[in-house]
């Protein structure tokens, strides 16, 4: 009873820290750069638009990390998805079919990784590293060129990417006298649906609870009769599935395929999840936290870009500092938990 209560406490506390930190950072941006358009609603929406893909991917990453695993293949998978979509559409394959194809490939890829991790008991890091090399390599096999998606290649996909969902409030007239209504793009809607779905899945389904159980203590989970192998298989499949959806969101934002795309995206996803309060040791975490983790990373980069005079290396340094901070907090929690258990 005692253990459970403490677990819940530390869990919500990490989430709370993340949310407070986001509010501080964003508020700071608003105060410092109110004259540079930081207070526009669109600045916040831009963070969502640019990071829609990352939100989906981080949701998947969080599920995997809950089982004390990791999936570093996501960046490569996104690059492969973008390339597949770009090449496929240019070959005249209809956009809906291409989207389904990408998702099916993602699921198959995830099943494979999950099988290796769950049933063959290989280190998740090694498995997903192999996955990363494979997907990056396959991207180059599909094409080494930069392939762009144009209106000619697929009018439907082009329309999806350029569709603005305008909001009826929060607009402003810029210095050129043009009224700018705030808007989001389709990928933001997709990302938010994914976020809510995974949030409820983790809270209210048996599978969701199993993820926490496996990561919290694998041995006791096994003793309770949980099929750990199956849970891990499903976790990695879910991660790659969400990563494919994220890849589509990413593709809707960049409208091109290239071997160089989404380099280091896996690290962005992991850092967002960690900042969001997900423990690398498993068992603790929440997609809402991860969502705020993505927003914090987006806000940092937005602040640095709005400032315009800071070097672009600053977001990396700030993210590093935040990560360090969170890892220290997490290790303290882990220490407390271990102490209580023994």
């Amino acid at each position: 009873m005692n253990i459970k209560k403490l677990n819940l406490n530390s869990h919500t506390l990490l989430l709370l820290i993340t949310i407070v930190l986001f509010i501080i950072l964003y508020g700071l941006g608003c105060i410092l750069y109110s004259n540079k358009g930081f207070t526009h609603l669109q600045t916040f929406l831009n963070i969502l638009i640019t990071n829609a893909g990352l939100i989906c991917i981080t949701c998947g990453m969080t599920c995997v990390m809950l089982t004390a695993g990791i999936d570093i293949s996501v960046g490569g998978l996104v690059a492969m998805d973008c390339m597949l979509i770009a090449v496929g559409l240019n070959k005249g394959i209809p956009a809906p079919l291409m989207v389904i194809l990408v998702i099916v490939i993602g699921i198959l890829f995830g099943l494979m990784q999950g099988f290796f991790v769950g049933y063959l008991n290989i280190q998740p890091f090694i498995v997903s590293m192999a996955g990363m090399f494979f997907t990056r390599g396959m991207t180059a096999v599909i094409s080494t060129d930069q392939v762009s998606i144009t209106e000619q290649s697929s009018p439907l996909y082009y329309a999806w990417a350029n569709y603005k969902i305008k909001l009826p409030f929060g607009g402003y007239i810029n210095n050129k006298g043009v009224y700018n209504a705030p808007y989001i793009r389709i990928n933001v809607i997709i990302a938010l649906i994914v976020l809510i779905a995974i949030f409820f899945m983790l809270r209210h389904t048996r599978f969701g609870r199993n993820l926490y159980a496996v990561g919290g203590n694998e041995q006791s989970a096994a003793m309770m009769g949980l099929n750990i192998k199956n849970v891990k298989l499903k976790a990695y499949t879910l991660s790659s599935f969400l990563c494919s959806i994220g890849g589509i969101c990413f593709s809707l934002n960049t409208m091109s395929g290239s071997v160089q795309q989404a380099l280091g995206l896996e690290m962005d996803a992991i850092s967002s999840a960690v900042i969001g309060g997900t423990l690398l040791t498993g068992g603790v975490g929440n997609v809402i936290g991860s969502f705020f983790g993505v927003l914090i990373n987006g806000t940092i980069s937005s602040i640095v870009k709005t400032n315009g005079k800071l070097a672009s290396s600053w977001p990396n340094i700030l993210t590093a500092a935040l990560l360090f901070l969170f890892i220290v907090i997490q290790s303290i929690f882990a220490a407390i938990r271990n102490k209580k258990m023994h």
Partner: peptide
């Protein structure tokens, strides 16, 4: 490219008068 797209969106919010872009790749700017 991702960084450059973010940068252009930031410029728009900052209401700059002109945007100068040296694109890293040729595609995906529509």
């Amino acid at each position: 490219q991702q960084n450059q797209i973010i940068a252009i969106r930031t410029f728009i919010q900052k209401e700059v008068d002109y945007i100068v872009l040296a694109p890293v790749i040729e595609d995906g700017w529509n």
